[in-house]
């Protein structure tokens, strides 16, 4: 546990030191969402109706941005060897990376989603369901992204391969997340969709770090 926290602290210090990289995903999220009113017109009915879809898709794409460097930098400068020799199982290292990715990318995206939803004229009473879906959703995306980043590690043009690998896996998250945000506007309960999202998270939490750990081991061999 002590090593896990030390590793998490190291990751957070590194992302703080490279603040521009950390902010890039959030700025991409804001810019990509702002393009939609320009492209499809500022009509409040239309925008308000499709706002959850826009926010979900843009959050998904923004979360992919930092994945390329999640293990890449450590792999290239030899740090990954030392992390794997820290006495922790490789899965724990992958989990620490996933938690760091969520804290530096998922959490800022979650915080940015509310003002963006207001900007897109989403009715205020429908915003909690959107955020409630994004909370487990971004966590699952961090876990799936860590899995993908570990698997493509060391592959030539891994950065191109990564979205092709992660996006199909992320579709259930997108479906349930956007559906949860939509049902509230129709007067229905978002609960079943949120429970399904939580179930996906519960399955990804043990499985993704295990698979990512195996990927890390294979990459250094």
């Amino acid at each position: 546990m002590k090593v896990f926290l030390a590793l998490l602290g190291r990751e957070l210090r590194l992302s703080l030191r490279h603040g521009a990289d950390t902010l890039a995903a959030l700025l991409f999220f804001f810019l990509a969402v702002s393009l939609f009113p320009l492209a499809i017109g500022p009509g409040p009915e239309m925008l308000g109706r499709i706002a959850p879809g826009i926010i979900w898709v843009c959050a998904l794409l923004a979360a992919l941005l930092p994945l390329d460097r999640l293990f890449g930098a450590d792999f290239e400068d030899g740090s990954l060897d030392l992390l794997l020799l820290s006495g922790q199982p490789a899965a724990a290292i992958a989990l620490a990376k996933a938690v760091a990715h969520w804290l530096t990318t998922g959490l800022p995206l979650l915080a940015g989603a509310a003002p963006l939803a207001v900007m897109l004229r989403r009715p205020p009473e429908a915003i909690p369901a959107l955020l409630g879906g994004l909370l487990p959703g971004t966590m699952t995306l961090s876990l799936l992204g860590t899995l993908g980043a570990a698997i493509v590690l060391g592959a030539r043009r891994g950065g191109v391969l990564l979205p092709l690998l992660v996006l199909p896996l992320a579709t259930p998250v997108l479906i349930f997340g956007a559906a949860a945000a939509d049902t509230v506007a129709g007067g229905l309960s978002a609960r079943p969709h949120l429970l399904l999202l939580a179930a996906v998270l519960a399955a990804a939490l043990p499985l993704c770090p295990l698979a990512a750990g195996a990927g890390l081991r294979a990459a250094v061999e």
Partner: peptide, 11 residues
């Protein structure tokens, strides 16, 4: 283990 690479973070 000390490899060929120094595992030093420039930042």
């Amino acid at each position: 283990y000390l490899g060929h690479l120094d595992a030093v973070k420039p930042g």
